[in-house]
Design a protein around this nucleic acid. Structure first.
Lengths: 248, 248
DNA sequence: TCATTTACGATCAAAGTCAATCATAAATGA
DNA sequence: TCATTTATGATTGACTTTGATCGTAAATGA
C-alpha cells in the first residue's frame, strides 16, 4: 500500500470518528505500528491532524483560547483602547456597519445593547451573537485569510442598508493617497459601506500612517480617524488639515 | 479508550446533565475511579469543568456550539453516517445549497473539493473556510440559537442563485403535513432554497419521522429523504409512495 | 457530638505508548 | 549491474497512563 493511500485511510476514519487510536489504524491499514507513527508524525507537521497520546485527533478548530495571549500583548491593548473609544461614538438606537478586521472586532464588547449591526466579518458574528446584539450579515463570497465577505453580492447587500455610522479597518493611511488596502475586492466593499453611511470612522493603530497599499478605498476627507499614541506631531498636523483625527 | 475520548464523553454527559457523579462517569467510560479523577483534575485546570464533591459540573451555561464535543456520541455517529451518504450525492463542479443545522454541518468534511457552496449556517462557514471550499454566504438577519441567517434579506440573497442540489435539515417529517420546522422565518428560507434547486434532499435522523412542527416548509414530494436505520417499515412504505427515501 | 460512610489524592507496580535505532527489502538512477 | 535512496518492520529503553491500595478528609446521619 502506498503512503498516500494509508494516510488517506487515516484521515478518513478521523473524519468519521474524531479520534482514532494507533491500534485501530494498524488494523485498518495493515501497516506496522512504526509506519503508522511515522505517518502521524508527518501528518501532524503538515497540520493535517493533531496527535494525542495513543492516537490522533482532528485539528481543533477554535476555542483554543487566544484570549489570554492576546490580552497580554501590548499591541492588543492598543487595539482595545482604540476600539473602546470608537465604540463610545455609538449611541443607543444607531444602525452601524462594522467592517471585517481585528480592530473593529475589538469594538464588539463595548457596543451598547440597543443597536443594529451590519457586518461582513465572519469572526465578528459569533461574538455579536453572544452579546445578543441584533445583527445582519451581508451576503457574499467568503474570502480566505481575512474571513471577510466580499464581491458583487456583498456590495449589493450593503447597498440595501443605510448606516448612522460606519467603522472601517484599513491598511494604509497616506496624505496623498488616502486610505488603501491590499485587496481591490475588499476596497470596493469598504467604498460601498462608506457611501451608505452618514458618518465614517477609520480605526487604525499608528503603524498604518504613511503606508500605501495597493487598492484605493477613499480620500482622507471621507472619514474621521481614530488612532493610538505614537503618531508623529508632524503627521498629526498634516492630517488634521484634511480630516478629523482623534488620538487615544 | 483514549484519554481524549474519555474526556469528551465526560463533557458530553455534563452538557446533558449539568452535574455528573464520578460513579456515573466510571460506568459510562469503563475507566477506573482513579483515571476519572485524574481526568477531572486535568479538565478543571484546563477550565473545562468545575469539580464538586462526588463529581463535576459545567463551568458555564452559555450555549456553545456543540459541533465538536458531540461527535463521539452514538447519536452523532448516526448523523455522520447520514451526512456522509448525502455528501456522496454531490459531484465535482456542483453548486449546492447547504442549510443551517447540525446534520448538514456534518456533511462538510465529506464534500468534494471542486464545488461551490452557498450556506446560511454560521457554524458552517469556518469549517468550509478550513477546507478551502469556494463558499458564498447568504445575507440576512442573524438568528439567536440556531445561528442561521434568515429573513427577507436571506430570501432575496438565495433567489440570486441557482443550485444543482439543495440539502436541508428539518424538524418534522409527516405523511400529511410534509416537512415542518418550528420557525416560520426559517421555513420561508428553506422554501426559497428548494425553489432554486434542481434536486432537493432532506437529511434527517429517524426521530424526525411522524413529527409535525409549527411551520410548513414543503410537501414530501418536493424533496428526497436521506435518513438512518430505525424508521418503521410501515412508515418507510408510506413515504416511499410519495417520494424517494434512502435509509443508510 | 461522634461514628459511619463516602470521596479524595498520593503512591506504586503493571501495562501501554513513544521516539530512536537498526536491519531488510524495494525502488531509483548512474 | 551496483550503489544509493526510500519505505518498512522489529527491537529497545524511556516515558506516560492506568488501576489498586491506603491513609486522610469531607459529608452524612443518629
Amino acid at each position: 500500500m502506498l503512503t498516500v493511500e494509508r494516510q488517506e485511510i487515516i484521515l478518513d476514519s478521523l473524519k468519521q470518528k474524531e479520534v482514532v487510536s494507533v491500534r485501530e489504524m494498524v488494523e485498518q491499514t495493515g501497516a506496522s505500528e512504526s509506519t503508522i507513527r511515522r505517518d502521524l508524525t508527518e501528518m501532524e507537521s503538515a497540520q493535517k491532524i493533531k496527535r494525542v497520546h495513543g492516537g490522533a485527533s482532528l485539528l481543533r478548530k477554535k476555542t483554543e483560547e487566544p484570549s489570554l495571549s492576546e490580552k497580554t500583548s501590548l499591541f492588543q491593548e492598543e487595539k482595545t483602547r482604540i476600539a473602546k473609544y470608537a465604540a463610545e461614538k455609538i449611541e443607543n438606537g444607531d444602525c452601524i456597519y462594522l467592517d471585517a478586521g481585528t480592530t473593529t472586532m475589538h469594538m464588539i464588547p463595548f457596543l451598547p445593547p440597543n443597536i443594529i449591526v451590519v457586518t461582513n466579518g465572519i469572526p465578528h458574528i459569533q461574538t455579536l451573537l453572544d452579546q445578543g446584539i441584533e445583527t445582519y450579515v451581508v451576503g457574499g463570497k467568503l474570502k480566505q485569510g481575512t474571513a471577510a465577505l466580499i464581491g458583487a453580492k456583498a456590495i449589493e447587500s450593503i447597498q440595501s442598508f443605510r448606516f448612522d455610522k460606519c467603522f472601517l479597518g484599513i491598511n494604509g493611511i497616506h496624505l496623498d493617497y488616502g486610505y488603501t488596502t491590499p485587496d481591490p475586492e475588499e476596497a470596493a466593499v469598504k467604498q460601498t459601506a462608506i457611501a451608505q453611511a452618514k458618518e465614517n470612522f477609520v480605526v487604525a493603530d499608528d503603524t498604518k500612517f504613511g503606508d500605501v497599499s495597493f487598492a484605493h478605498v477613499a480620500n482622507l476627507e471621507q472619514a474621521q480617524i481614530i488612532t493610538s499614541k505614537g503618531i508623529s506631531s508632524d503627521m498629526e498636523e498634516n492630517i488634521t488639515n484634511k480630516t478629523r483625527l482623534e488620538v487615544v
